[in-house]
């Protein structure tokens, strides 16, 4: 069963935030996404008082000049991620998630590049392995079983899955 995340945000962005685990546990990280941070915050919290989160006055939330495409089609809403991340209740083990059908995957030397329109994610080899196990359709309860069967930390496996859902790469059906 998926437990509520303790915090959506990185507490302190410093040099450590630039580090990325290539091996050891499944990892997925967004490496290009002009809108994804803003959209997740907005979807998760809606309008907050400006002294708490200034959603729009963020000089770093875009790339300059022509670097970004407009969202190609209605973007995947991470709203469904609330069910996993922020719900008052729980996500039941029999809740089924499906992979979005507009994802592109490209093999990389140390993992996998997942692209969804103008947003890019890098998945390390352990993550790519787990992703293959999860497949296009999965029940929450199956993830724990898959992790146990293949010697993957259940905590790390669920955190990986949480990210897939947060970013809208998988959504509940």
């Amino acid at each position: 069963m998926v437990q509520k995340s303790t915090s959506l945000f990185i507490e302190r962005v410093d040099e450590k935030a630039w580090l990325f685990d290539l091996e050891g546990k499944p990892e997925l990280i967004c490496i290009n996404g002009p809108y994804i941070n803003q959209r997740i915050v907005k979807e998760m919290y809606g309008d907050l008082p400006k002294d708490q989160i200034v959603l729009h006055a963020t000089p770093t939330t875009h790339h300059d000049a022509h670097w970004d495409h407009p969202p190609r089609r209605a973007r995947t809403s991470p709203t469904d991620g609330k069910k996993v991340l922020n719900s008052k209740g729980e996500v039941k083990d029999d809740c089924t998630f499906m992979m979005q059908d507009d994802l592109k995957m490209r093999e990389e030397r140390n993992g996998l590049l997942i692209s969804q329109n103008n947003t890019a994610y890098f998945v390390n080899n352990e993550g790519a392995f787990l992703l293959k196990l999860i497949g296009n359709r999965v029940q929450v309860g199956d993830i724990e079983t898959l992790c146990e069967k293949h010697g993957i930390s259940n905590t790390a496996g669920m955190e990986f899955f949480r990210r897939l859902v947060t970013f809208g790469l998988y959504r509940p059906i």
């Binding site: 995340s5 915090s7 959506l8 945000f9 990185i10 962005v13 935030a17 630039w18 990325f20 997925l28 990280i29 967004c30 490496i31 290009n32 996404g33 002009p34 994804i36 941070n37 997740i40 915050v41 400006k50 989160i53 200034v54 006055a57 963020t58 000089p59 770093t60 939330t61 790339h63 300059d64 670097w67 890098f122 990210r163 947060t166 970013f167």
Partner: peptide, 18 residues
């Protein structure tokens, strides 16, 4: 007054020059 709250799972490089 501008402050970016970085969501876990987003690498700061996503905010940097590509």
């Amino acid at each position: 007054g501008s402050k970016t709250h970085l969501v876990k799972g987003i690498h700061p490089v996503a905010f940097a020059c590509p």
